[in-house]
Design a protein around this nucleic acid. Structure first.
Ligand code: DCP
Ligand code: MG
Length: 1080
DNA sequence: ATCCTCCCCTAC
DNA sequence: TAAGGTAGGGGAGGAT
């Protein structure tokens, strides 16, 4: 259209399509639900558009049913422009912030209205901040007093990952944001009208009634104004991304960058040392494999590392409060970060990561000392030198911190050997570095880390296995490693403060609230269980470079230039470690709509994060290649240049040595087959001096479809210019529909196409291809079919079939630049997070949605009408296929089968009251699905979407099962000849620890009154097998697990204790047979 | 179920 | 002024 923002247009179109698809899909489900309702109801909710957030008392699914039934519009997603009301039971601060502009009401508003047959005033049901959120308001003062009274607990405010309490307070009290509480720039509406159109001016806001009465949100800050003002200051300009030397200078001064690169180096050193050591000890049997009974993990960590090193050369400061920072704190409101402060300063409430200004408020006498990066590195080298002498294994955690396996140092238990060992290490560190380190020890990483916290400062602590329970119970949840700000908030919502309380939370709740892995980890941690080994040799999986400070652009050229520099930077980093990658990701931080100038000087402030990745067909470390792809990725976004606050590039899917070989071979093979083409291309360019590559415009999608060696050739021989087919970028005519995310109008600040926009003309592409005559037919034939087609089409397009070519790119582009990248903007997620004022927000855009069991997805649709079921299987067979068929043990005992029927029914009915009979509608029962791709079925196009989906899933599931079956069959076949290889014992098809645990939990839960003796026998046999396989650790862990889960309240403790005891005795007996010693 | 992408989170 | 980087675990939701 008239504007020059085709990129915006395409994005817009996709956005709409995406949401529309989504909506129609979900709406189908609704009409189903709605039709189920009786007639004669009063549509009290007519005209309302309601979104349900989080956990509600009548559960989400029930509310949804009611809303639809009573004429309301249920919104699965929080779509700003549409939603009129949000249902929620509680509101934490972050949600409060996010929902600022909506009517947030309790579920009772719905139920009461329905009951009374009329819509009641929503204001009566307004959700106000909950208690826990209120409490947080007083966090600041508390922090101060608490910290001063108990220095050992200082970790309770972990350095980073905490929002500035004061900031948080301001937000929740007055719904003011960073911008409004610190208005740097006056923003008269006058200027807005003069300046370019405001794409972010919010059209949706007025539609949704305000949560509060204030007007502020109508005057959103303008990115351009903010930026212009900031960059008008030459000081700022010189220190921002507009300066070409910026990146280098920035990284030189960034403590976090130093920290990260040091860590990478250390991990590398440790890895290499280990490799060498393994080399030299190859002949010796490796004994220290997995003997957890004597495991001793030591966690060593310098006290206030940067500060200690700095104080060493400034002894006069030792007794004063000291902090390391760039800012000298001259200006009284310095937003400079404190990297590290000594314990004197901490007694005032000062913390690592805090801004100097705030710290000075707490401690006016705070002494600021500068960074001395070289010194930190020197001390660190000495430190690791010491560790290498003691440790069986080392995991580098940081410059000043490491985890060690020290089991070999302990000969006899109970002789305090741990303490003297720690003392020895600490003394040596003190002597050789002049700094204090603290040490924590325990039987696993978790306990060691917790012990360090308890030990600090300047001490050590051994968490004796006997004391674990008591020691753990008193810990605060946020002291658990991995629990940071976000999880702490979640716990706060749940009313969980201590690890002891956490232990009382049912595992099912943890799993559903935190996900399978995290839930299990939390469950284990609260019991002192931590199976993780030290990570000592894991190779690097990604390399990235990011800058989220000082990023202020005026136009697109600056962005592209900056991405160029960043690409070079990352290319150098890749080369330095001699690795290449094939996945490139661009991440862009964009100023949140309502955010003004960042709290931190030149910081990114509150941002939305957007990323886009591309997977290449080849490995690369080439700066130009990387730059081209990230620049292209950038164009798939539509941000204003002035709103960009951070940029980063990540390279993933790195080659390891094996890959490199494979890929080289792979390439060579292909190259051989493609020799003639290759030669032709290279040859034709040989006349030209290397330096002046010919320019070539090429459609990006087209390029991506080319074989990898051709891509490489093109990159090496030409200066590529990616273009995009303008036809596919056309702005949809529905543009003016107002409920869409506002699009940037054309303006200088827009990410506009590259200066040289080349219209789609295949002839422009042709010069890159060899002449027809040079194309070796055998080479062409050697290519996979789809590539053949592409090559041929590339040639064809020069003459007749331009059409085809365009069509082709259009479709690939459609799927290639998916609307996924838009999610952040449409979810409208915006909230503060992280530490003192930084932040890329993160109110999770993904609310917990109803999780449908597979069967539930059928939602009452009568599949039978479409497909008469094949001869029905027996119930038991049917059930056998189910995941839940835990204890249908090999001998086919009936108790197991009974149990399973029950379980399945419940599973099926979960939450939606579907009749058990629906089990029989499991699509896998329909022969039509068997082996046939659903899409190849004639009836396919006529099926409702969710049925299609269902069939697809079933199909893929079947395929997978076949694959697995084939595999096991062949595996077995292979294995049989090679006789006596011990296979891993399996319990109901599961072998890994977590799975078996889950099985056991399900078992115990299912038979809470008493176990079936056959099941006990099955489990016992399994444990015995483990004993034979020398997997004693697993035996131990599983028995502990059984101990734990049979002590739950819902369990009949007597019968179960007996059974478990019996199992233990059997295992012990087996131990004596196998090893001559009983269970420890 | 498993894989992939786009996040979020955590730690130093 | 100020230098809010980064690797890796993991979850949600979609595609296959
Ligand atoms: N937000 C943070 C946290 C840490 N660091 C740097 C400075 C620290 O000295 C070093 C080590 O981090 P620690 O978490 O170990 O903190 P300290 O060593 O300073 O204190 P302590 O370990 O005694 O709690 O990392 C930083 O720059 N910024
Ligand atoms: Mg430390």
């Amino acid at each position: 259209m008239a504007d020059q923002d085709p990129y915006g247009a395409i994005k817009f179109g996709e956005f709409r399509k995406y949401m529309q698809n989504k909506e129609s899909k979900l709406k189908e489900q609704e009409s189903i639900l709605g039709n189920q309702g009786e007639s004669g109801i009063i549509p009290v909710l007519q005209g309302l558009s309601i979104h349900v957030n989080g956990y509600t008392d009548p559960p989400q699914s029930e509310l949804r049913r009611l809303i639809v039934q009573y004429g309301g519009d249920y919104q699965h997603y929080l779509k700003k422009s549409k939603v009129t009301h949000i249902i929620a039971t509680t509101l934490t601060n972050s949600k409060m912030e996010e929902f600022r502009a909506y009517k947030v009401v309790t579920p009772n508003w719905i139920t009461d209205s329905i009951q009374q047959g009329q819509l009641l005033p929503w204001t009566e049901y307004r959700v106000i901040q909950n208690q826990s959120a209120q409490r947080e308001l007083s966090f600041g003062p508390q922090l101060t007093s608490k910290a001063s009274s108990s220095p050992l607990q200082t970790r309770q405010t972990t350095p980073k990952a905490k929002p500035d309490p004061t900031l948080q307070k301001a937000k929740s009290l007055s719904t003011r944001t960073e911008s409004t509480s610190k208005p740097l720039l006056p923003l008269p509406q006058l200027q807005q009208s003069i300046s370019t159109p405001q794409p972010y001016t919010d059209i949706s806001m007025p539609i949704s009634p305000h949560y509060t009465t204030e007007q502020e949100q109508n005057q959103l800050p303008s990115g351009k104004e903010l930026n212009t003002a900031l960059l008008a200051n030459p000081w700022n300009r010189n220190n921002s991304s507009t300066n070409p030397d910026f990146i280098k200078k920035y990284y030189q001064s960034s403590r976090l960058h130093h920290l990260s690169s040091w860590k990478a180096e250390l991990k590398d050193i440790v890895r290499k040392a280990k490799e060498q050591q393994q080399e030299s000890t190859r002949l010796r049997p490796i004994s220290s494999k997995r003997n957890d009974s004597h495991r001793l993990v030591m966690h060593v960590d310098f006290d206030c590392f940067f500060a200690s090193v700095g104080i060493k050369s400034r002894p006069e400061l030792a007794k004063l409060p000291v902090a390391v920072s760039h800012g000298k704190g001259l200006s009284k409101n310095s937003s400079s970060d404190i990297a590290s402060c000594n314990y004197v300063a901490r007694s005032f409430g000062v913390r690592n990561g805090m801004h100097v200004g705030r710290a000075k408020e707490l401690c006016p006498n705070l002494q600021i000392i500068p960074y001395e990066f070289e010194k930190y590195k020197e001390v660190s080298e000495i430190f690791y030198g010491i560790l290498f002498q003691y440790a069986d294994e080392i995991q580098a955690v940081s410059v000043d911190e490491a985890l060690l396996e020290m089991g070999s140092h302990i000969t006899v238990a109970g002789r305090n050997e741990e303490e003297s060992l720690a003392l020895m290490v600490r003394n040596e560190i003190r002597k050789k570095t002049g700094c204090e380190a603290s040490i924590g020890m325990g039987a696993n990483i978790l306990l060691a880390r917790l012990a360090t916290k308890k030990a600090k400062p300047c001490n050590h602590y051994y968490c004796d296995p006997q004391d674990v329970a008591a020691f753990l119970s008193e810990q605060k949840v946020e002291d658990l490693p991995g629990v940071g700000y976000a999880m702490k908030s979640k716990f706060q919502d749940m009313g969980v403060t201590t690890v002891g309380q956490l232990r009382q939370v049912a595992k099912s709740i943890l799993l559903s609230k935190f996900g399978p892995k995290t839930g299990q980890t939390l469950y284990d941690f609260s019991r002192g269980i931590d199976d993780r080994r030290l990570i000592t040799k894991q190779p690097r999986q990604s390399v990235s470079a990011e800058v989220n400070w000082g990023v202020r652009f005026e136009n697109n050229e600056q962005i592209e230039a900056f991405l160029g520099s960043l690409s070079s930077e990352i290319s150098e980093r890749l080369k330095a470690i001699d690795r290449k990658g094939k996945s490139i990701t661009l991440k862009v931080l964009v100023r949140a709509k309502h955010a003004g100038e960042a709290a931190k000087h030149l910081g990114c402030g509150e941002c939305d994060s957007h990323s886009k990745s591309v997977v290449l067909d080849f490995f690369t470390d080439d700066a130009d290649v990387i730059a081209k792809h990230v620049k292209h990725a950038l164009k798939s976004f539509t941000f204003l240049a002035v709103d960009i606050r951070g940029l980063s590039i990540q390279i993933q899917k790195l080659n390891n040595d094996a890959d490199q070989n494979i890929s080289v071979e792979d390439n060579q093979q292909r190259r051989l087959k493609f020799d003639s083409v290759h030669d032709a291309v290279t040859h034709s360019n040989q006349h030209k001096p290397e330096s002046s590559k010919s320019k070539m415009a090429i459609d990006y999608e087209m390029y991506m479809e080319l074989p990898q060696d051709i891509q490489r050739e093109l990159n090496e021989e030409h200066e590529l210019e990616f273009i995009t087919n303008p036809q596919q970028e056309d702005r949809p005519t529905e543009l003016h529909q107002k409920d869409q995310t506002p699009e940037p109008a054309a303006s200088n600040e827009n990410i506009t196409p590259p200066p040289a926009v080349v219209t789609q003309d295949p002839s422009q592409f042709l010069p890159a291809l060899p002449n027809w005559s040079q194309l070796d037919p055998s080479a062409l034939l050697a290519l996979p079919q789809n590539m053949q087609k592409q090559v041929l089409e590339a040639y064809k397009s020069s003459t007749s079939s331009k059409h085809q070519y365009i069509d082709n790119t259009t479709t690939t582009a459609d799927t290639g630049s998916k609307p996924i990248s838009l999610k952040p903007s449409l979810s409208g997620n915006t909230s503060a997070n992280g530490d003192y004022g930084k932040i890329t927000k993160s109110t999770s855009p993904r609310r917990s949605k109803p999780r449908f069991s597979k069967k539930k997805n059928l939602n009452g649709i009568t599949l039978t009408q479409l497909f008469p079921p094949s001869p029905k299987r027996t119930t038991i067979q049917n059930v056998e296929d189910d995941e839940g068929a835990l204890f249908l043990s090999g001998d086919g005992n009936t108790t197991g089968a009974q149990l399973m029927v029950g379980t399945t029914d419940r599973y099926t009915m979960e939450g939606n009251g579907l009749a058990p009979a629906i089990r029989d509608l499991n699509p896998s029962d329909f022969t039509l699905v068997n082996g046939t791709h659903p899409k190849s079925m004639e009836i396919w196009p006529q099926l409702p979407k969710d049925i299609q989906q269902e069939l697809l899933q079933t199909y893929y599931q079947e395929q997978r099962q076949k694959r697995i079956q084939n595999k096991t069959v062949t595996d077995v076949q292979k294995r049989i000849p090679s006789a006596p290889i011990q296979t891993e014992p399996i319990l109901m098809g599961k072998s890994n620890l977590a799975d078996v645990r889950t099985l056991l939990s399900a078992w115990v839960h299912e038979f809470s009154s008493a176990p079936d003796s056959k099941d006990v026998q099955t489990v016992t046999n399994y444990l015995k097998e483990l004993v034979w396989c020398k997997d004693l650790e697993k035996v131990q862990l599983l028995l502990m697990h059984l101990d734990r889960i049979t002590q739950a309240d819902s369990i009949n403790k007597t019968t179960w204790a007996n059974s478990v005891q019996g199992m233990k005795e059997s295992v012990s007996h087996e131990m004596i047979i196998v090893y001559g010693a009983p269970l420890g």
